[in-house]
Design a protein around this nucleic acid. Structure first.
Lengths: 245, 245
DNA sequence: CGATCTGTTGATGCTCATCAAATCCAGTGG
DNA sequence: CCACTGGATTTGATGAGCATCAACAGATCG
């Protein structure tokens, strides 16, 4: 839950009381192993699952059975929308590695927002960022070639990892297999593999085991046509992130 | 503004007072002609533009200068997110035909939501639907062939037009040029043209002038792999829409 | 009534999907 | 500790879907 509060604090400034009442909304914890789909399309959701450790993704299944990933969730991200009470999911959620989630009571957090403008604006901010990321993904899959598309995704995940403090010496935990990346980028696994090799040969990144290392951030962002405006970092911490480059 | 209230009422039930106080948030009206970009990427937004007549779209500009449309707005849709105060736009908005908008004061509507759960849940609902549509678009552009992709878009717009009462005898106003459609679907205009011809030859739709007529809804939805779940119509009016098929 | 936007058609080639198979690696059980 | 297993990565070869270029016809508008 710590990660979630950090994320909320990224945009707003929660008071000590607000933080403790947020903690009080947590009803329990769960753990899932790699590959496990723990939220299913079409189901109603009551509680909210907040990632505390590990990565997950939202995905949809096409008629031919292939899966399209529509967003990645990192520690601190929630797996459902918070606002609408008990809506049905139009996508599924699966763990991309070992994952731990905190179960948050939706009603409780809703009543909290009534009395906390800071919290409610933080939640609204995260919803807008979600939408914004999806817009950029649309641009990504339609207007950029496979290699650039991949580079762009790596840039996004690198920035998102750094704002939650998960980057050290340009290196981060990176649980995505090539198959998962191909499902996110709308490419075949084969072609994605060749795209990775291209980035490696250009000396831009190194990607092995479950670690991603950025070899040359400024050249990578230029190559990827990456501009972090769409992540809406225009609040606090921005300098910290930019320093990391 | 009538269209906006209708949209809000689609999911929640606003009281007479709520409706009139919504009306009171309107500070003026504007009209734009076809092709006019009236909201620019990177700019801060203060007021909210609500479409009262005509269609508009959100789009992003790629480095090569091409435009990617990331969503369409129909009468009743708002051009900005309502929640976050004065965020910067990560996209531009342009009119797809002659358009009329109502200018709504953001602060006023925000204070309204504090006292109206119905309104605030209606706003949250529309934000979730937006996200859901973008998720489906991601699936659309990555997993479906050009013809199916086009058919899917036509299905979506047909349903969205019918829930705001803009469909008569399977025919609707349809201001999108082939170029605009190609910008939304990530296709070349040439290939899009051939896709339209394919749909015409199959007797599924007729698309000429600024009118779209659905010739065979059930066959079209099957062909398009279209399922309206992602539009979250699971409240009122659903039967009305389904009847139209 | 010319100028410009939109729609249509044909020809060519590139990006990426698909199929197939080999290699590598982590985990598992005997 | 090693054989076994299934997943992940890699390489090669072939072909399909769509982009691109070019040109023209039709529509729309000032």
């Amino acid at each position: 839950m710590h990660a979630f509060i950090t994320k909320m604090n990224f945009t707003s400034c929660l008071s000590r009381e607000e933080e403790t009442s947020l903690q009080a909304c947590v009803e329990g914890h769960q753990a899932f192993s790699k590959g496990r789909t723990f939220l299913n399309q079409g189901k109603k959701t009551d509680g909210i699952h907040v990632l505390t450790e590990g990565w997950a993704c939202r995905y949809k299944i096409a008629v031919d059975g292939s899966e399209q990933i529509i967003s990645f969730m990192l520690p601190g991200d929630s797996c459902e929308d918070i606002f609408p009470i008990a809506n049905t999911l139009d996508h599924s959620v699966k763990a991309l590695g070992p994952v731990r989630v905190a179960m948050v009571n939706r009603q409780q957090i809703m009543t909290l927002t009534d009395h906390s403008p800071a919290l409610s604006s933080a939640l609204a901010w995260s919803c807008v960022v979600d939408k914004s990321i999806m817009g950029e993904w649309l641009l990504n899959v339609t207007r950029r070639s496979a290699v650039v598309r991949l580079a762009h995704l790596l840039c996004e995940l690198y920035v998102r990892a750094s704002i939650i403090g998960r980057v050290e010496r340009h290196t981060m935990y990176f649980p995505l297999t090539q198959i998962v990346m191909s499902e996110a980028l709308g490419l075949s696994a084969v072609h994605l593999n060749r795209s990775i090799q291209s980035l490696r040969q250009q000396g831009l990144v190194s990607l092995e085991g479950r670690k991603l290392t950025i070899r040359h951030w400024s050249r990578l962002t230029e190559f990827a046509e990456f501009n972090d405006d769409y992540l809406h970092l225009d609040r606090k911490l921005v300098t910290d992130v930019r320093m990391a480059s």
